[in-house]
């Protein structure tokens, strides 16, 4: 991707409260570049509730509505229908939620909105735990990962909730997984989401330097490694079409390389890593990637 071709216009103000190297801030910056100024953001409790700045300030140059944790998709339904009633049906109404607000507490409202074919874009920036409250496990936390509520690592009996397929089974207008570490993929998917009509869902992998125990400078390379090792697969499903994997490396790197970078996995022994690697391989095979 030629970064020189990306518009210089910014909808993210300086001085936001994101931690250094936070991918959630970075992802918002670029999502808004695609979505543009005819966009309204609905934001449930998440790191972004803080990142966005305290009263009377705001980090965004588009309208933003903070809402209770479990309600983003429902609030957005109300907002979108109201805009339609006002004769402004083209506004992008976008939920911007973390994994807690999506995989866990907000899931019911999302399912409702998806089933009702609400014309909204739901973006989940998934940093794989409750990071704003100080790194507690969510159903997006991968097996093995340390959090403050899984002090010996997230037990292997769990698997990260398959949000993509949960949403896909609602037959949405568009559903995708991506990360800002792959700018082309990220931009293409936001563009598609913007142009589709109906319920659209984008699952972003979003690194968290304090929560993943990584150096802030590595936050993009960590996400990149997640894709290159196949622990995170970038894919999409457009309307009635089949699921499409949008990035396949020449050869998947061993997941060990991804773990090595992150303190949250440092306690893992070889055996555990092998179990996780096996699971990844199984999934990649199922996706015809191995």
């Amino acid at each position: 991707m030629d970064f020189r071709e990306i518009a210089n216009v910014e909808y993210l103000n300086q001085g936001d409260f994101a931690c250094p190297g936070c991918a959630a801030g970075l992802s918002m910056r670029h999502a808004l570049k695609v979505l543009g100024d005819e966009t309204v953001i609905v934001m449930p409790a998440s790191c972004w509730s803080i990142i966005a700045g305290g009263l009377p300030t705001t980090a965004l140059q588009v309208p933003l509505m903070h809402v209770p944790f479990a309600t983003a998709a429902a609030v957005a339904s109300g907002v979108k229908n109201a805009f339609r009633e006002k004769g402004e049906p083209k506004k992008n109404v976008v939920c911007w939620a973390g994994d807690g607000g999506t995989f866990d507490i907000g899931l019911q409202a999302i399912s409702g909105a998806a089933e009702r074919r609400e014309d909204i874009i739901y973006v989940c920036y998934d940093n794989e735990a409750y990071m704003n409250t100080g790194i507690q496990r969510s159903s997006a936390t991968p097996p093995g990962a340390w959090t403050t509520t899984t002090p010996t690592g997230n037990p292997l009996i769990f698997e990260k909730k398959d949000m993509f397929n949960i949403i896909a089974s609602h037959n949405p207008a568009y559903v995708a997984t991506t990360t800002i570490a792959f700018p082309d993929d990220f931009y293409a998917k936001f563009e598609k989401a913007k142009n589709a009509k109906g319920f659209r869902f984008i699952h972003l992998l979003s690194s968290c330097p304090p929560g993943w125990r990584i150096d802030s400078k590595d936050s993009v390379s960590a996400m990149r490694l997640a894709v290159e090792t196949g622990i995170f697969v970038m894919m999409e499903k457009e309307g009635e079409q089949e699921i499409k994997v949008t990035y396949k490396p020449e050869k998947f790197k061993p997941v060990r390389e991804y773990f090595k970078l992150q303190g949250r996995y440092k306690h893992l022994d070889e055996e555990t890593i092998n179990v996780i690697q096996e699971r990844i391989n199984k999934r990649l095979k199922k996706l015809n990637l191995l």
Binding site: G53, P56, L64, M65
Partner: peptide, 8 residues
């Protein structure tokens, strides 16, 4: 554009 309900 304005934001509603930011942390106070």
């Amino acid at each position: 554009p304005m934001s509603f309900g930011a942390a106070a």
